[in-house]
Amino acid sequence: MKYGAIVVLAAASFAGPSKAQWMHQEHGGAFDGNAVQMAIAASASYGLALRCRNSDDLEIIYLTPEATEAGTIEVMNAASPTLLLRVDENEMFELAATLELANDGTVTAISDAPITVPSQVNSATTRVAAALKILGQVFHETEFKVNGSTAATNVLSEKCGLSME
């Protein structure tokens, strides 16, 4: 899983009980000038990130505290998991997800992100909610506060060439 450890470390570095603070991080690019851009939030043991290098590869990464093994991940992926995302009271996104193991053995979901997600997060006033849906059941529902989301998504959008319209 590329860059998963970065997100885990970043989320853990500023997570606290019931708090979330969005921040921007840039990784790599020293040799090719094509750094990975991330807008990251944490809430308790959960992490959420928007990740891109350019406007064509925007992804959502959702980190959970659930520890499991590779064989279990394969079974869960066979069940076609989805990532649920809702910003404030906007329409819910239900996105096809691939589950992976983070370096610490916890479950991480990765989905292609609709191009409107950074703009919604940018203008969010109360929350960004995320969850996993597997076989019709919702797991790991978490809300992230929006402190710092405007600044983090402004930088992400500028560096990845995303529109905030």
Rank of each mutant, 00 (worst) to 15 (best):
E26I: 15
A35I: 02
Q120V: 04
G4Y: 01
D112A: 12
A152L: 07
E100G: 09
D88C: 12
G71H: 00
S123V: 09
A44T: 08
P118E: 10
H27D: 00
T153R: 00
A152T: 06
T116F: 00
E143R: 10
D88T: 13
S18G: 08
M23A: 06
K133V: 11
E74M: 11
A78V: 06
T126R: 15
T64Y: 10
I73A: 01
G29N: 09
A70R: 14
A39P: 01
V138E: 15
I60D: 01
A12K: 09
A102N: 05
L48S: 05
H140A: 00
M23N: 12
A20Q: 11
Y46D: 09
I6R: 12
E141F: 02
S111T: 12
S123N: 13
N147E: 14
H24D: 12
E158R: 04
A109I: 03
K19V: 12
I115K: 11
E143I: 03
P81M: 00
Q21E: 13
E165M: 08
S123I: 09
K159N: 07
F139V: 03
D56W: 01
G148E: 13
I110E: 00
G29I: 02
A113F: 01
R86V: 11
T108E: 03
F139W: 05
I60V: 15
V7I: 15
E89I: 07
Y3F: 13
P114A: 06
S13G: 15
R86D: 06
D88N: 15
C52V: 04
S45C: 06
L85V: 09
S119M: 09
I115C: 00
T72N: 10
M23C: 07
S55V: 06
P114S: 11
M164S: 12
E66N: 08
N103I: 05
L58S: 09
A131C: 12
G16S: 14
W22E: 02
A39K: 11
A152V: 02
A49Y: 10
A130Y: 04
E100P: 00
G136K: 14
N34S: 11
A12W: 04
R53N: 05
A124K: 10
R127T: 14
V7N: 05
A109T: 08
V121N: 04
I115V: 13
L63N: 05
A152M: 05
A39L: 01
I73D: 03
G105N: 07
R86P: 00
E69I: 10
E141P: 03
L58E: 09
G105E: 06
A102T: 07
N122L: 02
I110D: 04
E165P: 01
T82D: 11
T150Y: 10
T142G: 00
E91P: 02
A41R: 04
A30G: 13
